[in-house]
Simulated scan of single mutants.
Amino acid sequence: MSEPVRYEQDGNVLTLTLNRPETRNSLTEMDMVDALVGCLERAQGDMSVRAVVLTGAGTAFSSGGNIKHMRDDVGTFAGGSSQIRENYRRGIQRIPRAFHELDVPCIAAVNGPAHGAGCDLTLMCDIRIASQTALFAESFAKVGIIPGDGGAWLLPRTIGLSRACEMIFTGAPIDAQQALDWGLVSRVVPDDALLDAALTLAHAIAANPPGVLRMSKRLVREGQRMDLPSLLELSAAFQGIAHRTADHREAIAATFEKRAPRYNGD
């Protein structure tokens, strides 16, 4: 069987590809959880990674939960209520926790349907680019369950409470254009241009100092739960670090010398 997630680095840009097209890249199998969490932890620990692109193999980004496993009460869905709760905590819920700890900017290149947990997976990324055939659905209600992987926290913060409730309560999909109109994605591109667009953006991000990128992302994340005075204090502390880096001095020198900067993460 193929590896669940492909890990491919080009310079400072890492591409992660969900690699189970036969299940439409479902997320609830433990080997997929382990592989994706492992890739995120590896990227977090590698300062040469300055941007991540996440996409899916085949025609779907991710189908979310494995419906066949739900029907057969196996894997994540095996056992009584208490056991299933623990299965979620030790299984798929490790994914949003790993994304929350990832300080590297992450782009979701949504190449097809992103349903249920697959939709929530796009929300765990910082930026979303959709192909014209992408579909987004908080489809949990359609199979008689609730968002179990953080969607009820992520979606309202992305598109607002009213639209999030509409998606969660109906389970109905929205297409790429509606996702753009609602602010779920930042752009829509032709299917055959999706990966190039995501990689171009990733390389533009990766052209900046890695430490600054990581601190900037952490500020944005912490700002979702901090009041302004607390965020200003954290910003001042991070700025004190940034001003004394070699990369800051290199950026200033390159500006005056009218050349491209060369950052090494120091």
Rank of each mutant, 00 (worst) to 15 (best):
A237E: 15
V110D: 08
V5F: 08
F61V: 02
F238M: 13
A78Y: 14
K217G: 02
V143A: 12
R89Y: 07
S62M: 02
C106S: 15
I127H: 09
A254R: 01
H248F: 09
S2R: 15
R20M: 06
L194M: 02
A242H: 13
D175F: 13
A206S: 09
Q132K: 08
K217L: 13
P147T: 00
N19F: 08
I67S: 02
H243T: 07
L135M: 12
G240V: 03
A253Y: 13
R249W: 11
I129V: 09
D196V: 10
F256S: 00
A202T: 04
L228H: 01
A176F: 08
R89M: 14
Q177L: 09
L180Y: 11
E250C: 04
V110G: 09
G223W: 00
A242M: 11
I67F: 08
L234G: 05
T158C: 12
I146P: 00
A35D: 08
K142M: 14
A237C: 05
R187P: 00
D247E: 14
R249P: 01
L155K: 04
T170E: 03
L232M: 15
Y88E: 03
V189D: 02
G148F: 10
Y263L: 14
D266R: 05
D181N: 05
E41W: 01
A204E: 12
N111D: 04
I67V: 13
A78D: 12
R42F: 00
E233Y: 07
I174H: 09
L18C: 11
G11C: 03
R218W: 02
D149F: 10
V52R: 02
G183L: 09
W182H: 09
E29A: 14
S48E: 13
Q177S: 07
G80T: 11
D103Q: 15
T59M: 06
Q224S: 07
K142G: 10
A246D: 15
N12T: 06
C125S: 09
R221T: 08
Q44G: 08
G80M: 10
P147Q: 01
N87Y: 13
F61P: 04
V104L: 08
T59N: 15
H248T: 07
A117S: 14
D10S: 06
T55L: 04
L161R: 07
C165I: 05
G240F: 04
A51N: 03
S186D: 03
S62N: 04
A109G: 13
A193V: 01
P4S: 08
L219G: 03
T28V: 00
G65N: 05
A152I: 06
V74G: 09
N12Q: 09
E41T: 07
I174S: 11
A137Y: 04
N208I: 00
H243R: 11
M70C: 04
L180C: 06
L16S: 12
T55K: 02
G56L: 04
S26A: 14
A137K: 03
R24I: 00
A202P: 02
D31Q: 10
A141E: 00
A254N: 03
I92V: 15
A117C: 12
A253P: 02
Q83T: 15
P96N: 01
A253F: 14
